[in-house]
Design a protein around this nucleic acid. Structure first.
Lengths: 140, 140
DNA sequence: TGTGAGCCTTCCACTTACTGGAAGGTCAAG
DNA sequence: CTTGACCTTCCAGTAAGTGGAAGGCTCACA
């Protein structure tokens, strides 16, 4: 099957599928005319990738999961460890975003939001929490 | 003051501050020896940027906020609108991450996590939700 | 006077995971 | 025979920095 059909089956854009081939996540056969020719197995791999990416696994994690998937002797504990770690990362991101949201909401509530020039949001941005002198820490 | 000291005051790495200059967010003076020379106003801008970035505003949003900050006649409603929209974006991201987390937790709970090779996590990744075309599927 | 540490400078490359677009080949329908 | 929908490759760009090389400046210390 051509890339367009494979893309429809895998719910991925053709460009993304070609990119996955570039980075050696998949190696489709080629038809006589030079077109990529995807087997059912290829489509299966693509769907695996689509699903794993949508769950927040990075490309390299997907690569690892895929090789575990194709390893007949893997231990399910190995996969579980990857997923568990990912849950932790997702939780940290959620907490960070919730912190942002709380601060933004507070700022918006303080702001009268009219035509006057004085704005508590800008004042907070300008004068927000200070590091004590000397502490160099990169924000993330 | 030199970039290192400005970095400490602003809680930003020197590299990032140079990058902000590259993209014209800040224009420090130069000392006779070619070193960048940051004024108190420059440091103030840098701290504004650090704070706004840490709240999730993009560089371009920071640029807009900064120009509002320096516009004596801006309306506070304009700033409020930017912040309110950002809250919406943050909320959408949180919801997405919570969806990921729920799915990952379900998968981890289903996985026995031992030395056996069968793993519900991989099975789900391989056979997860399908787009319309092709195989039968259960809706999420 | 030299020297070494620790600053500072510029420039280039790399990161993630694609996405857009140009130039051109292939195929089926009308 | 042409048109339009596919397909191919290659190049470039995105966001927001980060890492490192190669070299200049300053200051304390011997």
């Amino acid at each position: 099957m051509n890339i367009g059909e494979a893309a429809a089956h895998a719910n991925l854009p053709p460009k993304t599928i070609r990119y996955y081939e570039d980075i050696a996540l998949i190696r489709p056969a080629r038809a006589a005319n030079g077109y990529r020719d995807y087997s059912q197995t290829d489509v299966h791999r693509l769907r695996f990738l689509q699903r794993a990416r949508s769950l927040g696994f990075t490309i390299e994690e997907c690569r690892a999961l895929l090789s575990l998937y194709e390893d007949e002797h893997r231990a399910s504990a190995d996969v579980r460890a990857v997923a568990t770690q990912k849950i932790g990362e997702v939780e940290r991101k959620i907490a960070e975003l919730q912190g942002m949201k709380a601060t933004l909401k507070r700022l918006v509530q303080c702001c009268h939001g009219d035509e006057r020039p004085d704005c508590p949001i800008l004042e907070d941005l300008a004068g927000g929490p200070l590091p004590e002198t000397g502490a160099t820490r990169a924000p993330r």
